Amino acid sequence: MKINVILPAVLLAFGLTALSSCEDGISNVSTAEAAKDITGSWKVVQLTRNGEDLSERLDLTDFRIDFNPDGTYTLAEQLPFIANAPGTYSLSDPQYPFALILRPEGVQEDVVARFQFPVVEGERQLSLSFSLGCESNVYQFNFERENQDL
């Protein structure tokens, strides 16, 4: 009977000691998220419309978007895309972006694409989703950096 009382008390004391010793280590952990850096030249690796892969039907090899450190972007080649002219860009939030905001030259309003920045098979990707006129058609462009060393 004494073991039934002593054992839980010992386990409780051990647990409290373990918890109090871990608190100092937890307070020293930095939880700051780094700002997302999309500068560089990005090539399309996949294009879908409403989940259907269009990559085999369209020649994607020459389409590029270049994001420059000065906040400008340029496009190489034409594809149906959210912007058709160079301009300026920004992220909705530098650390936790949910949108890429483009302002093409000569346009008074921003164009906005849903933004994701996943790592796929060990490579950073840039994923942009948007509609081109018809709200029921959602295009998703998945890009990889031309030079992954950036």
Rank of each mutant, 00 (worst) to 15 (best):
V112Q: 01
V29G: 02
I38V: 15
V112W: 00
E123H: 12
S30W: 03
Q95S: 08
Q46A: 08
N68W: 01
N50Y: 07
Y96I: 10
V10H: 01
A85I: 01
T17M: 14
L7Q: 04
L19D: 00
C22W: 11
T17S: 15
F63Y: 12
L79R: 07
P94T: 07
P80W: 02
L58Y: 10
P104R: 03
D59W: 05
V120S: 05
F117Y: 15
E52S: 11
R124N: 11
A34T: 07
L60T: 05
A76W: 00
V44E: 02
L16N: 03
E23L: 13
S92R: 07
S41T: 15
K43V: 05
D93N: 15
L58G: 00
E52Q: 13
L54K: 10
Q108T: 08
L128R: 10
N68V: 01
L54Y: 09
V29E: 06
E33T: 15
L60G: 04
E33D: 10
D24G: 07
Y73M: 05
N4S: 08
P118Q: 08
P97T: 06
I101Y: 07
Y73G: 05
S21H: 06
T74L: 04
N4M: 05
W42Y: 08
D53T: 06
K36D: 01
E52C: 00
T88F: 04
A32W: 02
E23R: 12
A85Q: 09
V111E: 08
E123D: 12
L60P: 02
Y96K: 15
N68I: 00
E105S: 13
L102G: 06
V5E: 12
P104W: 05
Y89T: 04
F98I: 12
V44G: 03
I6K: 02
T61H: 14
N68D: 06
L60F: 08
D70F: 08
G51Y: 07
S92A: 04
L16D: 01
L11D: 04
D24K: 14
V5S: 08
L12E: 02
E23F: 11
V5P: 01
A85D: 09
L91P: 02
L47E: 00
F63G: 10
F117E: 15
G106V: 03
P94S: 13
P118N: 07
I82D: 05
R114N: 12
C22N: 09
G87S: 00
E56M: 12
L102T: 04
L16H: 02
V120A: 05
P118V: 10
V29W: 02
Q116L: 13
L60I: 11
Q108F: 06
R64L: 12
G15K: 03
N50M: 08
E121A: 15
Q95L: 03
Q78M: 14
L91G: 06
K36M: 02
L79E: 03
P97Q: 10
P86I: 03
I26A: 11
A113L: 09
L75H: 04
E123Y: 09
G51P: 06
V111R: 15
V5C: 03
N68G: 02
Q78K: 15
L12A: 15
N4F: 05
Q116R: 13
L19F: 10
P69V: 12
G106L: 06
R57F: 14
T88P: 03
Y96L: 14
N50F: 04
I38G: 07
S127V: 15
T61I: 13
T31E: 08
S20Y: 11
Y73Q: 03
E56C: 03
L11V: 14
E52D: 07
